[in-house]
Design a protein around this nucleic acid. Structure first.
Lengths: 400, 400
DNA sequence: GTAGGTTCTTTAATTAAGTTAACTTACATG
DNA sequence: CATGTAAGTTAACTTAATTAAAGAACCTAC
C-alpha cells in the first residue's frame, strides 16, 4: 500500500482534475470544483500548473449564468504526441498520435521469420527510430512509446515473457527502447491493450468493468476492473480462449480438449465447415481443402443457408462462452473484436439471444454486448493509451 | 474518484500502520517506519491516536540490536467485539468474536419455512438481540454486526436482492438492523464472506488475488482482487457453478445444460453414481433411491473402488473448472470449501494433477490450491471480517 | 564503571498543500 | 447606473507530514 503524503495528495487531485477536463471538457474551473469536491483555490492552482505543463489550455468563454463568464478549459491535444506499436506475430504496426488519439502517421513493417530476440529488438528500435525521424517536427513533443506485444507480457517490468509465434522468451522490450529513446516506454499484452483502447477511445468510455474479447485465429481478452487493466498473478488473466467449454470437445492447439477456441475461432469455423461438407451438406462451398472462415462468411452473404447455419451455430457458442464470462467477472460491458466479428450481422443476434436465455439474473441481462468500432489500428491505439494512463490517471506528476 | 485531502491522507496512513501491526505485530514503531516509508514522528503520532482509540496497545519490550529496546505494538484483541451472522437457507448461525476472530460464543437458530420478508427480518433482529443480551458484559464493546446472506446481495446498500431458497426479494437487512442496534452493520453474499474469512483468518492471509470456491449442494465462489472483494456490475461475479463446461451436458437447475455444478456438486455426484449403478457397476453401493455424495465418500473410505473412481472423476471435473478460473481470473491462490471437499483426500491429488496438466504457462502451475481449514463457523467468520475491513483497511477513522 | 556508539522514541521547527474567507473581476438585469 | 451573482484570485489559516535535533535506553569495549 502506498503511503499518504503531500506529494501523493497533490498528484491525486491533479489527476482528478485532468481526467475531468479530458472527459467533460470544455469545462470551467468552477464546475470542476463543484463536481470534484475540491475547493476553488485548489482547482485554480493545480490548473495553473497543468497549463504551465501545457497539457491543459484555456479555450473560449462560456455563457454567463448571471455573472462573470466562465473560462473553459480543454486538453491541449496538440501539445504532446505519442507512438503506439502493435507488435504482432508477423508484422509491426506503428502509429503516431496526438493526445486525443488522432493518428498523424502510421507505418507497417513485416517481420522476417524466424527471428532471434536480438534481431527483434533491433528491428523494433529501428522502425521506431524511422517513425521519429520521418516526423521530426513532432519529435521534441513526443512523451512516450507504448508497445502492445502479443503473447505473455510482464507489464510491470516491460518484458515479453513468451511470444509463442516468434518462439521467443524473456525479452526486455522496455529496457531496450528506454536505452535508445528519452521517452517513457510502456509495454502490455495486445489483448489488454485493445481493452484499454476501448476504454480510452472506443465504446468503453466511462465503463469501469469491461471485457474486450478478440476472436480471430485465437481467442483472448483484456479485462478492465474498477477502471484498471487486470493482469492476474502471472499475467494470464483473460486467456479465455482456453476455457474448457466442452468436456468432450475437439483437441485444441494447447493440447486440451474442448477449449472455447475450438468452436469459435476462425480456423475452427473452417474445420467445422469442412467436416459438414464431408458429411454431404448442401452448400455452395465445395473446396474441401482451402475453405476459410472468410469463405463461409462470403457464402452466407451470398445466401448460402448452410453457411448461415454454421455462423449461427458459432454465435451460439460465442454466447455460451460470454455467459461464462458474465458469471465469473460480471462486467458491465463486453466488446467483441477480431476477424470473426466481421460476420457480426449473423453472429450478434444469436449471441445476444443466447446470453439473455442463459444468464442467471435479470440485471445481468443488461450486460452490454457490442462490436468494436475502433478499426484498423485498434491495438496500436491501445498501446498509445498505455501512455495516456501514465499521463492522466496514474499521477499527473510527470516531468514534461 | 475520491479527492485527496488531509483527512484522507491521515486515515490512509493510519490504515497502513494498523494493518502492519495486525499482520506483523508485535512490531515496533521504528520497524513500521522503515517498512512503510513513513517517518518516525508520523508513525509515533498516529500510533498514539490508535492507542487512545484502544485498538492498539503496547506489549513487551523487544530485544535490543545494540541500542534502546523497541516497544512492541500489538492489536488490543479484547478491546472490541463483533457479531457475525451466517444467514443460510434453513438456519442462522451467529458468533460473537474479539478482534482476532476468536469465537467467544455461538448460537444456531432454525428458520421456520415458508417465511415472509418481515418475519425473516424480525427473527434476524431477535436472534441478534438474544446474542447481545446473553453476553451483556461485551455489549458495550461491540463495534459491528456482519451478515453473510445467501443469494444475491447488494453489499453497498446492505440489501438482499434475491434469496432463492427463501423465495424472498429486496430485503433491507442493513437498514433493519441499523434501526435496532447502534453498531455498524455490513451485509455481504455468503460465498464472498467466506473468501473474506480466508483472507483474514485462513490460508489466504497476505494473498492479494484469491478465489474461494464452495462446492456443496451448489457451487459458488468469492473473488478477492487486489485485496478487495470483487462484486462485479450486478453482484453476480463468482457465480461459477453455472459456468458451462460441457456443451452437451446434463440439465442444471438453472435451466441450462452442462453447468459446472452438474458434474461436481454433491447432488450431481449422487446422480452420477445412481446412473452407474443402474448400468450395473460392481459396487457395495446398492440403495438406488437414497444414495448421497456422503455415501459415496464412505464407500470409498471402506475401499470400494467404484466409489473411489467416481470421486476421482469428480476431482478431474473440479480441476478442469478451476483451470478455467485460472485462465480467467488468474489468482495466486484457490481455496476449496464445502461438503464435497470432505472427500479431499480422494479429490485433491487429481485436482492438482489436472490443473498442472491443463494450465497454459509454467508460472500458472504454481497457483496454490488448498482446502479450507476454517471449520464450522467459516461463513460467520467472514461476516465478522466485513467489520474488520471497515476497521482496518477502509479508513481507520471510525468513531469508537 | 564509564565513554562512546547505536537504536528507539519524542519534541520542536519547518514545509507542503488544502481550506476558509474575503476580495476582485466580469457580466446581467432592472 | 446600481445591484446582484457567478468566476476566479489572493491572503490568512489549518492540517498533517517532514526535517532536524534532542532525549532515552541499551550495548560494547576499554
Amino acid at each position: 500500500m502506498q503511503r499518504g503524503s503531500f506529494k501523493g495528495m497533490k498528484s491525486l487531485n491533479k489527476s482528478i482534475i485532468l481526467t475531468k477536463i479530458l472527459n467533460e471538457g470544455p469545462i470551467s474551473r468552477a464546475q470542476i470544483a463543484k463536481d470534484t469536491q475540491l475547493t476553488p483555490p485548489t482547482v485554480g492552482s493545480l490548473v495553473k500548473e497543468l497549463i504551465d505543463q501545457r497539457i491543459v489550455k484555456e479555450s473560449t468563454q462560456g455563457t454567463s449564468k448571471g455573472g462573470r463568464k466562465p473560462t473553459m478549459l480543454v486538453i491541449d491535444q496538440q501539445a504532446y504526441y505519442m507512438i503506439g506499436i502493435d507488435a504482432g506475430p508477423s508484422q509491426i504496426d506503428l502509429i503516431l498520435t496526438d493526445l486525443s488519439g488522432k493518428i498523424i502517421a502510421n507505418a507497417q513493417h513485416q517481420l522476417l521469420l524466424p527471428i532471434t530476440d536480438k534481431q527483434f529488438l533491433t528491428q523494433l528500435i529501428h522502425v521506431t527510430e524511422a517513425m521519429v525521424t520521418d516526423h521530426v517536427k513532432y519529435s521534441d513533443h513526443i512523451i512516450g512509446i507504448g508497445v502492445a506485444m502479443h503473447g505473455v507480457v510482464d507489464a510491470n517490468e516491460g518484458e515479453s515473457l513468451y511470444a509463442p509465434n516468434l518462439n521467443l522468451r524473456d525479452m526486455p522490450i522496455a529496457e531496450a527502447l528506454s536505452n535508445h529513446f528519452s521517452y517513457m516506454v510502456k509495454v502490455e499484452n495486445d489483448a489488454r491493450a485493445l481493452a484499454l483502447a476501448e476504454t480510452w477511445f472506443g465504446q468503453g468510455k466511462g465503463y469501469d468493468r469491461l471485457v474486450a474479447v478478440n476472436i480471430g485465429t485465437g481467442v483472448g481478452a483484456g479485462v478492465v476492473i474498477e477502471g484498471d487493466l487486470y493482469h492476474g498473478e502471472t499475467f494470464i488473466a483473460g486467456e479465455i480462449g482456453h476455457m474448457t467449454i466442452d468436456l468432450n470437445g475437439a483437441r485444441c492447439s494447447c493440447g486440451n480438449y474442448g477449449c472455447w477456441q475450438t468452436v469459435i475461432s476462425g480456423p475452427s469455423i473452417a474445420t467445422r465447415t469442412k467436416q459438414f461438407i464431408k458429411e454431404g451438406m448442401d452448400t455452395s462451398l465445395t473446396d474441401l481443402t482451402d475453405v476459410t472462415a472468410f469463405d463461409v462468411f462470403e457464402a452466407a452473404e451470398a445466401g448460402d443457408t448452410f453457411a448461415q447455419k454454421i455462423l449461427t451455430e458459432t454465435g451460439y457458442y460465442i454466447g455460451v462462452g460470454l455467459t461464462n464470462l458474465i458469471h465469473t467477472i460480471n462486467p458491465s460491458q463486453i466488446i467483441l473484436n477480431g476477424g470473426v466479428m466481421k460476420a457480426n450481422t449473423y453472429l450478434m443476434p444469436i449471441i445476444k439471444e443466447t446470453i439473455a436465455e442463459r444468464v442467471l439474473t435479470r440485471a445481468a441481462k443488461d450486460t452490454l454486448v457490442t462490436v468494436s468500432e475502433l478499426g484498423d489500428h485498434a491495438t496500436a491505439l491501445g498501446a498509445v493509451a498505455l501512455i495516456l494512463v501514465e499521463l492522466f490517471a496514474k499521477n499527473g506528476e510527470l516531468e514534461l
